[in-house]
């Protein structure tokens, strides 16, 4: 009975790792294909966060002894990745990187005066 449960958990874990690898590949392709800094950041940061979380959960499911430490690592990634990305986006706006010519809305320009 327990052996069957372990095999099912292992298969689910490998599916999770494949999803994560797929998203990491997509993120790096988006990093090349997208036209300007903000689009690249938006594609790549979200996709790598999802991919990393999915791989960590998958490894925790395959070998349950790894689950607590990989969950701690997942919590660190969830806490740190958005902070770095938002700081970098704000910095590149203030540094004077222009938006792509096809973008339609620039909300940060209106809020900039209060800052």
């Amino acid at each position: 009975m327990t052996a069957v449960v372990y095999i099912i958990l292992e298969i689910i874990g490998y599916i999770f790792i494949s999803i994560g690898t797929f998203f990491l590949l997509l993120a790096s392709i988006g990093l090349i294909r997208m036209p300007d800094v903000y689009n690249r950041m938006q594609t790549a940061t979200k996709a790598t966060t999802l991919g990393a979380l999915s791989v960590l959960v998958g490894i925790g499911l395959i070998d349950l002894w790894w689950l607590p430490k990989s969950l701690i690592l997942a919590i660190f990634i969830v806490l740190t990745a958005p902070i770095g990305a938002s700081a970098l986006a704000r910095a590149s706006y203030k540094h004077g990187v222009k938006l792509w010519k096809g973008s339609v809305v620039d909300k940060y320009k209106d809020e900039k005066e209060e800052d």
């Binding site: 740190t80 902070i83 938002s86 700081a87 800052d115």
Partner: peptide
């Protein structure tokens, strides 16, 4: 900005 300040205080 507030995100960096709060996040660094938390981490």
């Amino acid at each position: 900005n507030a995100v960096v300040e709060t996040g660094s205080k938390l981490l």
